[in-house]
Design a protein around this nucleic acid. Sequence first.
DNA 1: GGCCAGGACACCA
DNA 2: TGGTGTCATGGC
Length: 224
Amino acid sequence: MLNLIIEVYHTLYQTYGPQGWWPVGGKYFPEQKDIYEIIAGAVLTQNTSWKNASQALKMLRQKGLLDPERIAGLPRNELASVIRPSGYYNQKAERLIAMTTLYLKADKDGRMPKREELLTLKGIGPETADSILLYAYHEPVFVVDAYTKRIFRRMGVLKGENSYEEVQEVFMKNLPPDEKLYNEYHALIVRHAKDVCRKNPLCSMCVLRKKEFCNYTEPWQQLS
DNA sequence: GGCCAGGACACCA
DNA sequence: TGGTGTCATGGC
């Protein structure tokens, strides 16, 4: 299992190369985007294409609102109308204001928000919380999403484990705690799922791995 | 014109 | 716990 999870990473990286998700940043990449912008992006992209989310970010920037102090004090309706392109704008406006308030509180204390704190906010679930910790604060936390579960279940790596934390544990036990690795791996999974998984009736990994270990068949294939 | 995206939550059995 | 409905725009 250990080799498999690492091997898949290398295969994906060799196939697609670096995905350039939120800049790896920190001391390694000084041009890193502002932490707050990454946080806002994480909320705005929930169940939404990055194109739509970035449109909303652009609107915020144009109006000079990509600023936690201003967003925290903005009426929900006003914020909602600005972030409209990201969809779910009423929900997201409320979530973004709550998230921003927590960000400011932590920042004032010179620290980062804790995972438990993030999860107490309505609308911040495990994936968004971990995305914020990983992509904004460079914490070595593996981000699990629906693609991860689907792909690795098809491959047989995941079997019974279903909950977010269970799946996360499988990856973190089998990978070194390297935030740059986690950053790239998650982005590569999303890239591959979009490129191949969705368009191919067979397991996506079959394409990369030449059907060496995948025995997945779609339900309609089992019938015939 | 239908499908779905870098989710989360309330509600129900 | 597991399944389903809801939130909503814009790109393909």
